[in-house]
Design a protein around this nucleic acid. Structure first.
Lengths: 243, 243
DNA sequence: TTTTACAAAATTGTTGACGATTTGCATAAC
DNA sequence: GTTATGCAAATCGTCAACAATTTTGTAAAA
């Protein structure tokens, strides 16, 4: 448990590190689509907005790029990521692999306390749903999966899944259907039953179905018009020289 | 396939980006134990060594910290990571989860070409082993697992496993037995047989055994004497004031 | 009219310097 | 002899300015 050098998220008197602050703000903006996929992120503008120097913004960019939420292009700058359809499919495929293991482990090691944690979380999800708080519902929905990872008792997996869920959120924001069904809390209920049932195969099947549901509800059929990719629209590559 | 903004690893005339260069050099030094776990990494010294400014070193630090190969402590600096025993166990546990899925997928989708790729790799492993090239053997051993991930055809998993394998290398370097058994290429041979056998359960069992072998060959019994953790030695937390 | 060449603007890449924090050491007090 | 205090060195955190690159706009030439 005792990591040698603890990474404190807070400095002395309890104020949030500005670095983390900026990262979180940009994260929220991207997931909310206030920053749209493909949008250029100009260092100086952001620096002025947050009242810091460009160096700080650059550090935040590196973090976001690592999470695949923005793209860093040398000498060109940073752009909000535009996950392709193939990428989206791979992310959900990866989640199936990871969460299969998570669910299997949680099912076999489930105890009363853990079951209670899940139930409490589901209650919060239902509350948000009934109150029509769509934003909270989406966040809680992601945190449900994170809770499962935490119960699997493996920090490595937990951190990776966290990144994957963030990426999923961007994908969902980019490809979601006009009328979001938002019925994943029902899936989560079923998942709890399967988890407490003690049958790993049943539980993993349930999780696989759930992730497929999310993916299939996305509109992954055609390229979104957000950033006009003329090459694909016109089905040809740009000619270097007309001749 | 067409990612909108391609992330070029090379600049114009084909020379490696200095950023990547520095990251790779430090990576190699850490995995070779030329930089020992716990060692302080002073920005200015490294900057002079590589002939760049501190900003560049800082960017490399962020990358390495993200891979958990160094620790960044605010106002104190960067230190080569000292993975704890618990961390080591978690990493190998995580790999079991991930590679379970990988092996399962590869087994069910194996074709002749893929089998040939694995065979070719194993041949290289054997060659390095017989020539006594221990360093190459270790690298190839890691790349074997990476090859499997690539054959699973999921970039997300592949990248994550790459990080995990790097971390494993540091753990192995830190905790390896005095006389390295280095017989993992036998395990890999068995793995190939299982993979081509077409039985996913057998193949995953084989991989699980292999990873457990690596882990169990480590000396994870007691704290290494490198960094004395008095708190754990004496089973108490340091008192802030005596009285 | 189209293409090319050139110039100007915007933006990123890089550096060196300055202030803040931590650490180590010497000195003094108990 | 041990503990507390204060100073000095080392190192990190931050910034603002300069250089290099890309992009955009304009005009001349084919």
């Amino acid at each position: 448990m005792a990591h040698p050098a603890e990474p404190p998220r807070f400095t002395g008197s309890g104020k949030l590190r500005p670095e983390e602050q900026i990262y979180q703000e940009m994260l929220g903006a991207i997931l909310d689509r206030r920053l749209e996929p493909g949008m250029k992120l100009i260092e100086e503008d952001l620096a002025k907005t947050f009242g810091v120097s460009r160096a700080r913004i650059r550090a935040a960019f590196l973090q976001l790029a690592h999470d695949k939420l923005i793209n860093l292009v040398p000498n060109r700058g940073a752009f909000v990521a535009e996950p392709t359809i193939d990428e989206a499919i791979e992310v959900f495929s990866a989640r199936r692999m990871i969460e299969d293991g998570v669910v299997r482990k949680v099912t076999t090691h489930m105890n009363d306390d853990q079951a209670e944690q899940i139930r409490a979380h589901l209650q919060a999800e239902h509350k948000a749903h009934h109150e029509g708080d769509h934003r909270a519902a989406i966040i809680l929905s992601g945190e449900f999966h994170l809770l499962l990872a935490r119960l699997a008792n493996n920090l490595v997996i937990e951190e990776f899944l966290e990144r994957l869920i963030l990426r999923s959120s961007l994908i969902i924001a980019m490809y979601e259907s006009p009328q979001p069904a938002d019925c994943s809390h029902d899936d989560h209920d079923a998942l709890l039953r399967a988890l407490t049932g003690g049958n790993p195969d049943e539980a993993t099947a349930c999780m696989a179905r759930h992730l497929d549901n999310i993916r299939d509800r996305l509109q992954l059929q055609r390229e979104k018009p957000g950033k006009t990719d003329f090459a694909s629209i016109f089905g040809r590559r740009p000619t270097s020289k007309a001749g």
